[in-house]
């Protein structure tokens, strides 16, 4: 199974949401990282045939996905960022309906619905109406519907958004379990989500792929170093203007800051090992810090 994205572009009212993108993906978990507006969701929607590209093409094992039509969507499992459902349906009903429109045979659908309800831990809530579920349970129902057809391509757009830490960890583990022998593309702006489970991370900015690699390769790609130091509170403003700050922690004595810089920012700064959050800030720092309050 190979997805090949060639020169893919999507324009909205003259703005290029995805800009001449080229990616090839095989089996494995791919983490798609980028700030809001980077083009992640637009890319995923094109991969799910929900949006037509302005130019370029996407092929699955050499065949154009829009031409493949239902045959391509048969391979697909998708959990969108805004997971919409039918509020009056029970979880079981909802999954049966999705199984039907996924083209599963009734006997297979029956089996898979039961399996997936168990796999995502919704056995007790199977007869509850979807509108009565908690946020975490809804997301689990979402992953269950995406997995019903045992998809070869699983696309998850911000699957952990809005979940509490427990739910997020549980969800990450679930995705890891499901990731075997399929292509999983996971979009998020929560760095730790992909750090643990992605084999390869794709960094997107302004509709373009700015970097790709494993977590280690991305960390190694940083041209700057990470420093930790303690400063007085009145120095924070000055440092924020001058450097990319990946973390700040205040206490009674002052503030502990984590700075990304080519050279030692202040004399008492100590060199730290970089992590993926630092990489994120390194590549998207300006936007994250100034416009979107990210990281």
């Amino acid at each position: 199974m190979e997805l090949n994205i060639t020169n893919l572009t999507k324009e909205f009212a003259g703005m290029q949401a995805v800009n001449h993108l080229n990616i090839t993906m095989g089996s494995g978990v791919y983490g798609l990282l980028g700030v809001n507006g980077a083009g992640k969701t637009t890319l995923m929607r094109m991969l799910c045939t929900l949006l037509h590209p302005t130019s370029g093409e996407i092929t699955c094992d050499g065949k154009e996905i829009f031409a493949m039509d239902g045959e391509y969507r048969k391979l697909l499992g998708y959990l969108p960022q805004d997971f919409g459902f039918y509020p009056e349906f029970t979880v079981e009903n909802y999954l049966h309906y999705i199984a039907t429109i996924k083209g599963l045979r009734p006997v297979v659908a029956q089996k898979r619905v039961k399996e997936m309800i168990g796999a995502v831990g919704l056995k007790k809530a199977a007869h509850k109406k979807m509108k009565k579920l908690s946020g975490g349970m809804k997301r689990r129902a979402g992953i269950a519907q995406a997995m019903l057809n045992d998809p070869k391509i699983l696309i998850l757009d911000e699957p952990t958004a809005g979940l509490d830490p427990n739910e997020r960890i549980r969800f990450r583990n679930l995705i890891s379990e499901l990731a075997e022998e399929r292509l999983v593309l996971l979009s998020t702006h929560i760095v730790s989500d992909v750090e643990y489970i992605a084999n390869e991370i794709l960094l997107m900015r302004d509709g373009k792929l700015v970097h790709r690699g494993t977590a280690k390769e991305l960390i190694d790609s940083m041209q700057q170093q990470v420093w930790k130091c303690y400063i007085n509170k009145n120095e924070v403003g000055h440092l924020l203007k001058k450097y990319k700050i990946s973390n700040m922690k205040s206490d009674a004595q002052g503030v502990e800051v984590r700075i990304i810089s080519e050279e030692k920012p202040i004399p008492n700064a100590v060199l730290e090992e970089a992590n993926l959050e630092d990489v994120f800030l390194y590549y998207f720092g300006e936007k994250a810090g100034e416009e979107n309050d990210m990281v």
């Binding site: 799910c48 239902g70 048969k74 697909l76 919409g84 039918y86 996924k102």
Partner: peptide
């Protein structure tokens, strides 16, 4: 209901459904 993404990404979502 924002159920369109899932509906149209299914095998039968753009024909029989």
């Amino acid at each position: 209901l924002k159920a369109d993404s899932i509906f149209f990404s299914t095998k039968l979502g753009r024909n029989r459904a």
